[in-house]
Design a protein around this nucleic acid. Sequence first.
DNA 1: ACAAAAGTGTTACGGTTACACCCATGC
DNA 2: GCATGGGTGTAACCGTAACACTTTTGT
Lengths: 234, 234
Amino acid sequence: MDIENGHEITYRYEKEDKVLVAVDCIIFGFDGEDLKILLIKRGFEPEKGKWSLVGGFLKKEETLETAATRLLEHYTGLENIYMEQVATFSEVDRDPVERTITTAYYALINIQEHSKNLIHQFSAKWFSASKAPHLIFDHDAMVQHALQRLRHRAATEPIGFDLLPEKFTMLQLQKLYEAIWDTQFDKRNFINKINSLNIIDKLDEKDMTTSRKGSFLYQFNAEKHKQQNGKLLI
Amino acid sequence: MDIENGHEITYRYEKEDKVLVAVDCIIFGFDGEDLKILLIKRGFEPEKGKWSLVGGFLKKEETLETAATRLLEHYTGLENIYMEQVATFSEVDRDPVERTITTAYYALINIQEHSKNLIHQFSAKWFSASKAPHLIFDHDAMVQHALQRLRHRAATEPIGFDLLPEKFTMLQLQKLYEAIWDTQFDKRNFINKINSLNIIDKLDEKDMTTSRKGSFLYQFNAEKHKQQNGKLLI
DNA sequence: ACAAAAGTGTTACGGTTACACCCATGC
DNA sequence: GCATGGGTGTAACCGTAACACTTTTGT
């Protein structure tokens, strides 16, 4: 309900406070070893020169999702990116300039595909999620919160594939899951587990770049996944 | 980040759109059988006479949490209520009167303790979560979302006790968990599981109201729980 | 032939599930 | 004494975790 009293009249919204609403994006990528986040160096005051998340203000004719999508496209050049709302942060003094609440979204992108030009243009840089510098305002808390949500989601939905190339090796997939949970898995157990899920296809193709023997490439199969209603991933 | 471009100037927040921000509360209670939600009948247009969640607008000097707490106190007379943010809903036309985004919180209250006067004053009523009427705007979606979050949280944190009296029987606790997940548990397995968690104390007191033999009362022990870092509940 | 990564199965363990009878008491 | 709800233990099952050697191939 959007209303707080019960008088028998049409409620006058006009007397209510309006505030600025922002959207901040935790953009995750994976380089084969570490889970990374994309940060940009602020080019203006306040906190000029400090690192921050990609963000912007909600426009009146947009949903939060639309705004997040717009920002992602603006900063990475990518469309159709997996995104999930994390939470809304509303401490009164979180932005020293003006009262602003902000909704955080995390996004998963294939780190190979985003625009290098745009990275340069915005003084953006990839940092390991675990070794990122301190961020402005409450952005550190947003990252932690996003990481928790990513872990939860990746344990139950096949979203990890959004962080990988379309074709990937088992070892890449394992390294990704290890990076997300900052842990180690046993190679045989991991492969058995993934195979038992029956959601990826083994291709006839090998990646020959990492060994003489070469390692088979796999591909996520959304159709197969639909038929495995609700199996947990990890 | 709250900013969307990188020009080397102080950013002018003034040109950005401001919107109304609301808070809606999914208030859960438990009557011994069903998981309930507290709804109020709107006394004004639009949608006058329809059922809706408890809600109100964010004031400029409040956080969302503060606003939710204020609304809860206003509608139930209770303070120090367990609350968790669910998500923010932002469809452009979700409120037909004016552009409004709203953040949903769920709250857990002991259904015995809230003010009956206030319930009457606001034409409020408890409904089984599974049999509630259709609500205004996007409130049905909020309830579903809240239920999912409640299930997730109650599986990992001892928040169920907020829905019960301070002293409760094992059967009450079991019925509560059954209501939250809309499922049935085996009595012996449930008791064994709960006892193995080592987070509740068996009292020397019995509830004599439901049987001739009487059933022992238990009490949540926060100290014990702290020492059981991270054991899952269900 | 050897170095370097890929690929492959089995056993042990622990937690979850299934299941049925006796106990205490008030009427 | 009997009806009613309260209280209790064990065995089967299943998924997870631990573990080491063989294969391939370029140099």
